[in-house]
């Protein structure tokens, strides 16, 4: 499942450039977390559009690790892109405290959606598109917030598994401290993606690659050495999160219903 790094870079930078410029924009807006996914998307955009056209927002909450904020700032400075740090704690807490919300999932969703609100607001200010930072592993497993971190206008890394993000990140010289950092949504102390999901990304991606990309059935996957309970777990995660990968379901009444028989591409006329 190793990707051709040179051709992928060419395709993804060309994708960002074309899908931004042909709809009349020149800038992109991105949330920079200090993790590898947003670093890779940002790096690709700075190659594609030039550093002046990239507006990065570092949006920490009071529980965010200082190390992540510092890494994001250093990385933005290295790329020479525009960046700004906005502490979202007052915004988040005015809602969370008022409603006494302590459930981790709810807090995580609120933080992700506040960041989304800021990025889309700034996209108007800078006349740009919001750049996606969700990778294929997260998208398939639904490990993200619908209309939160999953929301964007264009996503260059959505067809790359996490391990492929690491490959391309290394090739594009993303700083080692970002590349080698334990993946985490950074929502609370000690949280990591792999402890949330229960498996290592290397194992998950290998299974997803054979199951999704190579269309192997259960028997073949077991022969490859994957455990039955792991296969079932991830099949269920994919099935249950399908709603996050599509438009809201529209009840059909007419002869032409949006997305069913009213079918046009986003790039219509461009």
């Amino acid at each position: 499942m190793d990707i051709n790094l040179d051709i992928c870079t060419h395709i993804l930078t060309n994708f960002i450039s074309e899908e931004t410029k042909k709809v009349g924009f020149h800038n992109v807006i991105v949330g920079l977390s200090g993790g590898v996914d947003s670093a890779l998307s940002t790096k690709l955009a700075s190659i594609a559009l030039g550093s002046n056209s990239v507006f990065a927002y570092i949006l920490p909450y009071k529980l965010s690790k200082r190390e992540n904020i510092d890494d994001a700032i250093t990385f933005a400075k290295q790329l020479g892109i525009n960046y700004e740090i906005l502490d979202i704690t007052p915004m988040a807490d005015s809602y969370l405290s008022l409603n006494n919300i302590i459930d981790k999932v709810r807090v995580g969703n609120v933080l992700a959606r506040i960041r989304m609100v800021i990025l889309f607001d700034r996209s108007v200010q800078h006349e740009g598109l919001v750049l996606g930072t969700s990778n294929k592993t997260e998208l398939l497993l639904g490990y993200g917030t619908w209309y939160g971190d999953m929301a964007s206008s264009i996503n260059p890394i959505g067809d790359l598994y996490k391990t492929q993000v690491w490959q391309l990140g290394e090739y594009l010289r993303i700083p080692v401290n970002i590349l080698e950092k334990t993946p985490s949504a950074d929502l609370w102390e000690g949280q990591t993606d792999e402890s949330d999901i229960g498996y290592r990304y290397k194992e998950i991606d290998s299974l997803l690659f054979y199951m999704v990309d190579q269309r192997m059935n259960r028997d073949k996957l077991i022969k490859l050495g994957f455990k039955e309970d792991m296969i079932e777990k991830f099949k269920e995660m994919i099935r249950k999160s399908q709603f996050k990968r599509q438009l809201p379901v529209i009840a059909k009444i007419s002869l032409r219903t949006i997305d069913k028989d009213f079918r046009y591409c986003r790039d219509w006329g461009y």
Binding site: M1, D2, I3, N4, L5, I7, I11
Partner: peptide, 10 residues
Amino acid sequence: PARGVYKEQF
């Protein structure tokens, strides 16, 4: 379309 952009072959 460009698809299957792998190390061993495009």
